[in-house]
Design a protein around this nucleic acid. Structure first.
Lengths: 262, 262
DNA sequence: ATTCCGGTTGCAATCTCTGCAACGTTCATT
DNA sequence: AATGAACGTTGCAGAGATTGCAACCGGAAT
């Protein structure tokens, strides 16, 4: 929309990969050196980029400060966190919290497993949207046309033999998830990792976030993990209640209805 | 420098205070609604701001993802190296950089002394953890339980008469180091070699690395070496500052009001 | 229905940004 | 010392992106 700002913002992800000098930035942006210089200077004035001694640029402290505020603004996270910790204390496995935003599902919180096994995931990073339990929960609640449009737009990587193969299968799975009010991922992303999740709803009954418990086969079988479902759902419901109950605005319905208003 | 980018970036700290709608943003920016709208749209496309259901804007998740990625790509060694070289140029002695990892303290960089006498150490090699100045600095910052557990687990070789004799003495020494913010090793590893060091900290204040200057008695006495402490500390602080993104970003928010509505 | 409020869009003027080319530094090579 | 290369920096004029305006919507409240 705005060429100048567009270019300036494009510099940031580029620098996130690692420090770069003026010419590298200019080349990758496809603009003249002097143009890149002026953009970088503006970013610099705002503390978004920093210039190291060797004159190369990297992301600046202001960005970190803003990022900090950005997460704090995701107030679901604040409310949910203690509940997630409790959940982790009770079952011992890795607990995730995720939200849907702009065609992506993002992890916004995580409590590490107390078992030695570690699984890869990163706060702020988009999740494997076609297979993750939390993704299914969040997408299942989208308005029907949007959900379908998104499903068509996605690609369906075959992470494992049990990955969701295509849009049709995905939509069917979402319907099931929507119906039952919980979701699983049994080896759809990584062969040996299973996952069960439940939705967190706001005052209006819409799904605002989703939480899940993940564990590798070597620690618990899929059935054992599934036995934790009631606990996971209870946790999600508690978060929903607290999330909706907060303000004096309209503390009406405390238990979220299964069928959100259209 | 660039008006458009300047204005766009000024929106971010503004939203960090809390969600705002279009008109609020336009007013606080001192521009026309339509201008603000277009800036916000561009920010939106880059995921820097997010639009909630009530159409108000808030900071977006991409900010967080960017910061996360940047932190992961940070390399202490790369940033520290030029500073270490400068330190070496100023004092002439051997300069070391070390990190703590998996119950060990490892040298990850070294600038050789310019005096003919050199000391033995090798990049990548674990240091004498119970006596080295850098080790004391790194361990002093560990969480209390972990620090104690580690201290108990270690063995205390009597390299010299002045080597740390046991866990109790070591923990006491660590407390001192933690308190004063610097550390020494006077002949604890090799009778004739002394050493002073200072901690390098990340954004969150945690010690991420430590640097030190080492020299044999025959070149400088312990007191003379200690007189270099301010220089060593200053170097460590400079590295810290650069590592955490250039200090408290003095975001000179130039007010966008050069072109007021007539 | 009407009014208000806030967001959105098309347009012309113009102000800002761009690319260029020349210049300044630093560093390595001859 | 001199030469050259590499890279960052600056002044300028032209071009095109950006701006403010005013009109237009769409929903909410009256």
């Amino acid at each position: 929309m705005s060429q100048t700002v567009d270019r300036a913002l494009s510099i940031l992800p580029l620098l996130a990969e690692g420090p770069a000098n003026l010419e590298q930035v200019a080349t990758r942006l496809g603009v003249h050196k002097s143009t890149a210089l002026r953009l970088l200077r503006t970013l610099h004035e705002h503390g978004m980029v920093y210039r190291q001694q060797d004159q190369r640029y990297r992301l600046g402290a202001r960005l970190f400060a803003l990022a900090q505020e950005a997460v704090e603004n995701l107030d679901v996270r604040e409310i949910a966190h203690p509940h997630l910790v409790t959940l982790n204390e009770r079952c011992g496995h890795t607990v995730h919290l995720a939200v849907y935003e702009e065609n992506e599902v993002l992890y916004i919180d995580k409590v590490e497993s107390r078992y030695p096994v570690r699984m890869y995931s990163r706060i702020g990073k988009p999740v494997a949207i076609t297979v993750a339990a939390v993704a299914k929960l969040l997408l299942a609640d989208l308005p029907e046309p949007e959900r379908r449009a998104l499903a068509e737009r996605l690609t369906y990587p075959a992470y494992t033999a049990r990955s969701t193969p295509n849009a049709a299968a995905f939509l069917k799975e979402l319907a099931t998830v929507r119906e039952q009010g919980w979701a699983t991922d049994f080896g759809g992303h990584e062969e040996s990792i299973n996952c069960v999740g439940a939705p967190i709803r706001g005052t209006d009954g819409r799904v605002v976030a989703a939480c899940s418990v993940s564990a590798p086969n070597v620690v618990v079988s899929a059935e054992e993990l599934l036995s934790l479902l009631p606990l996971v759902r209870r946790t999600a419901d508690e978060i929903s209640r607290e999330y909706s109950g907060g303000g004096p605005a309209s503390a009406s319905v405390s238990h979220a209805s299964q069928n959100p208003p259209k």
